[in-house]
Amino acid sequence: MSDRVSVAMTDRRVIKGDTIFKGIILALASSIILILLIMIFEMVKESLPAIQKFGGRFLIGREWDAVQGEFGALDFLYGSVLSSLLAILLATPLSVGAALFITDIAPRKVGNFIAPVVELLAAIPSVIYGLWGVLVMAPWLQQSIQPWLVEHLGFLPFFQGAPYGVSMMAAVFILMIMIIPIITSITKEVLLAVPVSQKEAAYALGATRWEMVRLSLIPYARSGVLGAVILGLGRAIGETMAVTMVIGNTPQISLSLLAPGYTMPSVIANEFAETTSKLHASALMEVGLILLVVTLIINVMARLLIWSVTRGDTGARA
């Protein structure tokens, strides 16, 4: 035959190369599971002293006293839950409306311009939202919105007290502004995943645009939108910097939105670098653990919902 060199088929070098390669990428990929487990383990381990000392009292206690060594996190839980829920309540209709505007109302050019701009805004770091919140929005709230609310709606428990600017209200607004881009862009994706035939079916029946939205888009996209909202909630609950900068950092439970408050991430941000005792650090760790558990639950729920909607178009390679 020709001068070709016949390669022995039992050349082990290549098998070795593939085995080593597979080992390396397997190790790197596995490290992701390991990282998650280590994070959970560390949070639990470091929280143990506080959990053992306070037990369930930690969740309902309102005393947060590093000097006396007495820690209860209720005020932070309240602040986190209230600010996130209000923000999501305000953000959801606006985001869904904006997403519908982008996909089904705006001329294609306008939609193609707004969508990436909204996504770009989701990339602005939270410390910058906080900067704007504390230096621009809070003074504006203090001077215009809040005095007006006190004067005209002051009889309601929600708008009582002196206008400070930095307040629960400021936190709610800044969170709302921050999560709108997230919910809007996910909702947009979900709406775009609705088959055109669904829309055409509604129009063919003589439906108006709104009726098409109600008949075709909303039922089809409902669980995906819900997933987007829950994901937004997860972001809001874990949001640290912007909230810390505008909420006033005062542990209290007040119905008034004008009063300052405190959230779980904020107390960690403010106190963790300069804890006074092991117990103090452990109490903050437990706050972090609660935050971790809440966000884990929220994220798993949201992922399952979004997966159930978009699974169809992200199938594996054939």
Binding site: V7, A8, M9, R12, V14
Partner: peptide
């Protein structure tokens, strides 16, 4: 069998098979 050697033999490297 390629030249009477089984390419599915456990000792055989699939990569070397594909070169031939």
């Amino acid at each position: 069998l390629l030249d009477d050697a089984d390419i599915y033999d456990r000792k055989v490297d699939p990569v070397a098979v594909r070169r031939r």
